[in-house]
Structures are given as C-alpha cells and as structure tokens.
Write a protein that binds this DNA or RNA. Structure first.
Lengths: 214, 214
DNA sequence: CTTCTCGGATACCGGCACTATCTAATCATC
DNA sequence: GATGATTAGATAGTGCCGGTATCCGAGAAG
C-alpha cells in the first residue's frame, strides 16, 4: 500500500499523514527507493488509533507520541507498559499545593480511599495523575461553596469500581499482551467518552422519568 | 470590590478578567463612573465557575458563553434550562453519516437503548449530543476491529444509570432552581472528570489486586 | 515521453486563549 | 492640590497547536 491508498482508506489527507510521520506518531513505511515507501495494514491500524486519540480523545499530538512510545516499548512487562501509557494520558493542571482548598481536598480524597479500602490506590497517592485530577476537581467544587467530598463520592466510587472490574474482565478476554495493551488504551480513549455519553443519556432518561419533558 | 481585588481573590489576572468581560463570560460590574466599577461576591462566584469550566473542563470560551446564557435565561423552566445548558457543552465531531461504521453504530446504540428499556432516551435519538458521541466512539472502536457494541455496553449502561440516579438525588437536595441548575452544570464540568478519575483509580486498585505491582 | 505520485524539507495558516500597550478619567495619599 | 496608582475601554500582539501548502528532484505508470 502506498501513501495515497493509506490516505483514502483512512480518510486522512496525505499532508496530515506526512505530518504524523514527521512527528513520529506513525512509523516510517518500508522504504523501497528514494521516492517510494510501502505501508501495510499495521500502519493503517496505527493511523486509525492515532486519529481516534486526537479527534475523539482530544489528546495532544505530543501526548500521543509519548503514549505510543510506551505501548511499543516491549522491554517492559504488560502491567508496567499499560500503567505508563495510561499515566501519560491525562492533562490535568497541577494543583497549587499552597491553596487551602487543595490541601483540604487531599485530606478528603485520602479519607475516601481509606473508607473504601482501596489500599493499593492509597499507596499511589500524589503519584497517580488520576489522584491529582480528583483533588483538583474536589478543590474547585468546594471553592464554589458546594459540600462535596468523601461522603458524597463514596457511592460513586463503588459504582466506578464495578466499572473497573468490567474493564479488566473485558481486557483479559483478549489473548495477547499486545492486543490487551491496545485495548486498554482504547478503553481510556474511546470507552471513557462512551461511558460519559451513557451517563448523560442515563441522566436524560432518568430526568424524563422523574419530570417528564415539560 | 474593585477589579484589583476581584483579581487577587480569584487568582485570575486583571488582563484575563477584562478579556472575560469583553467576551461576555462575566457580567459587567455596577458602573460608578467612567473609570470605576464595583463587583460583588456574585461576580467572584461566576468567575470561579468560568475558570473551572475552562481549566478543568477544558470547555472553549465560546461554549462557556453559550452555557451561561442558558443558565441565566430565567424565561425557561428548570428542566429546559438545564437540558439546554448541558446540550451546549459537548464538543464531539459530527459523525459522518455516509460511513458504514457510523451507520452500524447507530443500529447498535438503538438496540442498546431498546434492550435497556430507555424509552425516553430512545426518543432523543439523533438529537442528543450524548447519543451522537456514543455513536462516534462506537464506530471508532469497530473501525479498529474490536467487537464492541450493545452486548458489551449493556452492563456499563446499567451502572451509569445508577450513577445518574445518584446525580439527580444529589441535585434535588438543593432548595432553589437556580442552585440546582448551577449544581448540574458543575456536575457535568467537575463531577464527570472526578468520576473519570475515580474510574482510573479503581482500575489501578483492581489491577494491583489482580496482578500486583510487578 | 509525458504525466502522476512519491519522500523530504520548509514555510505558512487559522483558531484560540490570553497578554500587552495605550489613553483619558478618576482615585487614593501625602 | 499635586502625584502616582488604578480603572474602563480599545486595539494590537503573542505563543502554541494542528494541520496545510508549496516546492524540489527522483522515480513510477501508461
């Protein structure tokens, strides 16, 4: 497959594919001579993954490069590779540790994890980006005067834990490590928006049941 | 309160506040004379809400303006106002209706809603942005060759419905319509990232339980 | 032979979220 | 009442980001 075909089959313009090649989001094709390279199904697949990350996941190009670097790094075991790739994803503003709301949010999240018995996650405190973004969100809530903390979040966390169990069960159904890692990335990129969409639909459904369409 | 104080108390620079005023994200202060305006706690609160939407929710400025327009439009009832504000939020690329994966995704989501008995959401098909973004995500999944559809999503949807019930229960606990609407916006802007963070933490917890840290 | 397409390099573009600068009026303080 | 800081309001500029566009000389396709 040549560049033009890669372009038509993916629906991505030639110029953009060249840009991705330059940026290292897509591996070079097998170069035949000075003016021809051959691409295969793996390139097409990778290109679709990149597009999904950028367009649907709104992941910055630099982050995509980083994530894919971890995915491709087969010097690491699956768990580490997966963790590294997922930890590279989020784009949360750093919490300002001097802010009193942020400090309060730290305590609150700690209390939540203790209460849930998430001892493993507790150890990851202040390393995990997920932990940090939870702190940021909680601080913002409280800065606006809403009473929102461990008490309110605990039932949500319980539901999210059950979601995570589903995630891992689904992942384990795939045979090879490589596909599992790719599936996990897609889970973070595509399934989370899908979950969010289901969440909104469920709100609309439940709201219509309670209040009608008015 | 004058501009300088609004700036220090919110941690937002004077230049940026002026920008928000220009862009209509923040109502003008009470003008005293040609060079002085007076701002109150309501301005501070609104400014913090705007910042949370932009920084944490990564909502574009134009969208913030639109959402706040609905929030402030008291010619509408609460349910409509809320729906309008929430529907203005998402920023999903329009699905390409000619794409076969997209058409398959439409059928799949329809089947999912039927199976769940979400008859109200079913009626909103192709209007609701949440529905659209679910279609987009599903199409991308299948384009990459993963078997992902109503079958796999149904248990997630069940959990999301229970999440939505929690959301509405929490919202109803607030006394006035105005606060309820603001809380709902915050739920979409801050609580969804918080849920996502909980989801990731739960994955890390569950992954550590199953595979250790390796 | 002629027309297309290729890889590779470089320049350019439009949108966005600010940021900086200026002016004339007014405030706060000595 | 002089003086330096602040303000509203207007306009221009900045930095980043995701692409696009253009040009080149080498090869491919009919």
């Amino acid at each position: 497959m040549r560049l033009a075909e890669l372009s038509t089959r993916s629906g991505v313009s030639v110029a953009t594919i060249k840009y991705y090649l330059r940026e290292g989001l897509l591996p070079q094709g097998r170069q035949i001579n000075a003016t021809t390279s051959e691409y295969d199904e793996e390139h097409l697949r990778r290109l679709r993954l990149v597009r999904a990350m950028i367009q649907i996941g709104r992941v910055p190009v630099a982050t995509v490069r980083e994530v894919l670097g971890h995915v491709d790094d087969d010097s690491l075991g699956r768990t580490i590779r997966l963790g590294a790739a997922l930890w590279a994803l989020p784009q949360v503003p750093e919490p300002d540790e001097d802010d009193e709301y942020v400090r309060a949010a730290h305590r609150e999240v700690g209390a939540l994890l203790d209460r849930l018995g998430w001892h493993n996650a507790r150890q990851l405190t202040s390393i995990s980006p997920a932990y940090r973004s939870l702190v940021v969100a909680l601080a913002a809530f409280r800065r606006l005067g809403f009473d929102w903390g461990a008490e309110q979040l605990a039932p949500y966390a319980e539901l999210m834990h059950r979601t995570a169990v589903l995630d891992l069960d689904n992942m384990e159904a795939y045979p090879s490590d490589a596909v599992q890692v790719e599936f996990a990335i897609l889970g973070a990129i595509l399934n989370e928006p899908a979950l969010q969409a289901l969440h909104r639909l469920a709100q609309e459904e439940e709201s219509a049941r309670r209040y009608g369409f008015e």
